[in-house]
Simulated scan of single mutants.
Amino acid sequence: MTDTSAVQTETGFDTVLRFILPDRDCRGRLVRLGPVLDEILSAHDYPPPVKHCLAEALVLTALMGSMLKDEQDQMTIQARSEEGLIRLLVCDYRDGALRGYAEVAPDVPAQVGANPRLETLFGKGHLAVTFDLASTGQRYQGIVPLEGENLSEAIETYFAQSEQLPTRVRTAMAFGQDGGIAGGMLVQHLADGEEGRERLHVRFDHPEWEHVSILADTISHGELVDQALSMEALVWRLFHEEHELRTDGLVPLRKGCRCSAEHYASILSRFGKEERAEMANDAGDIVVDCAFCSREFAIPGMLDEVS
């Protein structure tokens, strides 16, 4: 067996480890979030069940976003409901930059545990996964119901229905006085290897895929959030009996809110003069609230052209 991870510097927090099992036509991603997770979650005082769900969504966004090829490509997860504890949850990824936000109902019952079912969190809602490809200008979107125990199960449904890709996802979150840790693994079977190509004959019961998915199911919650266990050691622990295991590079992660006064001024300049006048306050400024980082930006001078 070939173990290329042994020659690399072992990863810590806030990094995605990409790996391939060539003989099984499978690819995978491992991620463990730490300081970046705390930085994103600290923007709002989320109740425990919302914090747990948003942390899982950020792990899923990092796992899926790290599969993008172009630096300007973007992947977005959006969960929406009109009746649940969480009305809107949005996370996106672009070139290693990760951000997320949840809009919470006014009152969260105290009896709701830290890790409730999706039905408790969202009621009847839907999950949309969107890929915006910069090189072609194309947008691909798949929408699935918010059903199952957690967001990971909903993502597996997305890949099965929208991408026809056999996929297993495992996530884990742990919060303590010193902050949070969130980890996850995603493995997929690609019928023609890493690039996929023709997928008309993908089999969800393919023996190679069944073997890998069974191994993936053995990963434990504790292993995913164990900061003393590197991701290289974890993927080796799972697949050390394979003929060949290749790591395919590391992707560093960072908090990536794109808000700035210049950014919002550019967006507002696209509106007509009358529309900008309606948005402005008595001082003539347009105040923009960034939900991702909980900051307000007062954009001055937007009414200069309004007579």
Rank of each mutant, 00 (worst) to 15 (best):
F19G: 00
P48R: 11
D25H: 12
P48N: 10
V16W: 02
P22H: 04
L30K: 00
V59A: 05
Q72N: 13
A62Q: 02
L68P: 00
Q74N: 10
L17A: 06
G12M: 14
A62H: 02
L68I: 05
D38P: 04
I40Y: 02
C26A: 15
P22I: 03
E39M: 10
P22W: 02
A62C: 15
Q74W: 08
I77Y: 15
L60W: 08
L63W: 04
R32Y: 03
T61R: 03
P47W: 08
T11K: 09
P49I: 03
R27T: 10
A55S: 14
R24F: 10
L17F: 05
M75E: 10
E10T: 14
D45T: 07
E10Q: 14
L37G: 01
E10Y: 15
T76F: 07
L60I: 12
G12F: 11
E39S: 12
L37I: 10
L63R: 03
H52R: 08
L58V: 07
L17Y: 02
I40N: 01
M67P: 05
L63N: 03
L60V: 09
R18K: 14
H44G: 06
V31E: 01
R24W: 06
L21Q: 01
D38G: 13
H44F: 09
L54F: 09
L30R: 01
A55P: 05
C53D: 13
K51V: 06
C53T: 11
D70V: 07
H52L: 09
F13L: 15
D70N: 12
Q74R: 14
R18A: 14
E39D: 13
F13A: 15
D45W: 04
M67E: 11
A55Y: 02
A43I: 07
K51Q: 14
A57E: 05
E71K: 15
D25I: 05
D14Y: 08
L17S: 04
H44L: 09
D25M: 11
P35K: 08
D25N: 15
D70M: 12
V36D: 03
Y46R: 06
M64F: 10
D38Y: 09
D73N: 06
G12A: 15
V36N: 03
I20W: 08
R24V: 05
K51Y: 12
C26R: 00
F19T: 01
D38L: 11
Q78F: 07
V59M: 05
I77S: 06
T15F: 02
L41P: 00
G65R: 02
I40M: 09
L33P: 00
T61L: 04
A62F: 03
R29M: 09
T15N: 11
E10P: 15
G12I: 13
V59E: 01
P35T: 10
L21N: 00
R18N: 13
D73M: 05
P48L: 12
R24Y: 11
R29F: 06
E39F: 13
L63F: 07
G28V: 01
G12D: 15
P47C: 11
A79W: 00
A62T: 07
A62I: 04
L33A: 04
Q78K: 06
D14F: 09
L17W: 02
L37Y: 06
T11Q: 14
L60K: 07
F13C: 13
